[in-house]
């Protein structure tokens, strides 16, 4: 089911929780709504579910305007951050609950529940209570309950935030697998950029209620629309550097970062990702102030002018505190922003 959001706005008092948002989601896509807390991503999700009424704007599922349709008739499955399982009911009763409420016969409901339980791999726990399951299993029950009524759209609110780090990675793969298997248009909310990038077909980044960029993860990572998106995506965080441009030469302090850039003279904000540096005999000299071993990589803390710069190198490189390394920035990896923080070019 295609989803179209037009000028969607939600106002609480003077605050625009969501501000004139436009979005198109294709059938069968998995879309991540990403942003810091309070950016309006959950509000958007709850407006899609129908639990929150928009102040302005329209939501279409396919060609149908669903803006004023109540949640129970929207054909959506919703999974809450705390799973919202009914604690006094067994897993089976939890999953059949939406069917029974829709007048499905008990035997039929149980059959359908078992079918979906097999998809999410919880069929062996049907007689347990939610409290007897692990967090990851509880979440699968919640997903099964959302999917059992065969909705057109699956909505997940921070589906991974209640899980520990290891389970989180496994579960996000699981969500992707279930989504692909059921072939359902899915929207999930997260504040974790890695989570969003790893499983989404496309990501919508929001800030203060405004949609910043809506893109395929890789494109967004390499071509962030503005400084906020550039800063929000990627670990370790991107380096924010002040640069000067004169006659096509980009400099930061005394260091020359690039020559021959087609950019008007002036002062700019620039962003360089830590992994955009490569070791180069003819490059800029960096004094290593500090370093962190992360496993695959070695994160060096150095200075470019007065600014602290993080440089990522392979962990097999021999560096120690106080060493000087020479490095350059990969072609096209200097992101230059204008005064309104918009990306104006990659050099």
């Amino acid at each position: 089911m295609d989803i179209r959001i037009e000028n969607l706005t939600k106002t609480y008092g003077n605050l625009n929780a969501v501000d004139h948002m436009n979005l198109r989601i294709n059938d069968g896509e998995l879309v991540g709504l990403l942003g810091p807390s309070g950016c309006g991503k959950s509000t958007t999700l709850f407006m899609l579910s129908g639990l929150t009424t928009p102040t302005e704007g329209k939501i279409f599922f396919g060609d149908k305007d669903v803006t004023s349709i109540p949640p129970e008739d929207r054909e959506i499955g919703l999974v809450f951050q705390n799973y919202a399982l009914y604690p006094h009911m067994t897993v089976e009763d939890n999953i059949t609950f939406p069917l029974i409420n829709r007048g499905v016969k008990k035997a039929q409901a149980r059959e359908e529940a078992l079918e979906i339980a097999k998809v999410v791999k919880i069929d062996q726990y049907m007689n347990r209570k939610p409290s007897e399951l692990s967090g990851g299993q509880q979440q699968r029950v919640a997903i099964a309950r959302a999917l059992v009524k065969k909705p057109q759209v699956l909505l997940l609110d921070e589906p991974l935030s209640n899980l520990d780090a290891k389970l989180r990675v496994a579960t996000r793969e699981e969500i992707r697998r279930i989504q692909q298997e059921v072939k359902i248009t899915t929207i999930f909310v997260t504040h974790d950029q890695e989570e969003a990038m790893s499983i989404s077909d496309r990501i919508a980044v929001m800030k203060e209620g405004v949609l910043q960029q809506y893109e395929v993860p890789q494109t967004m990572y390499l071509n962030p629309a503005n400084e906020f998106v550039a800063n929000f995506l990627g670990t370790p965080e991107i380096n924010n550097i002040e640069v000067d441009v004169k006659d096509g030469v980009i400099t930061a302090g005394d260091a020359v970062l690039r020559t021959g850039a087609k950019l008007a003279d002036g002062h700019y904000h620039a962003g360089i990702r830590p992994e955009s540096f490569y070791v180069d005999e003819n490059g800029i000299s960096f004094a290593v102030d500090n370093l962190r071993m992360t496993g695959r990589d070695l994160l060096l803390f150095t200075k470019l002018g007065q600014t602290v710069v993080r440089v990522l190198v392979h962990s097999y490189m021999h560096v120690a505190e106080g060493d000087v390394i020479k490095a350059s920035v990969r072609e096209g990896h200097i992101l230059v922003f204008d005064s309104s923080e918009k990306l104006i070019g990659r050099f």
Partner: peptide
């Protein structure tokens, strides 16, 4: 009782 249970029930046509 968390509000999400109520909302979940609502979505489940309860």
């Amino acid at each position: 009782v968390p509000e999400s249970l109520y909302l979940a029930a609502k979505v489940d046509k309860c």
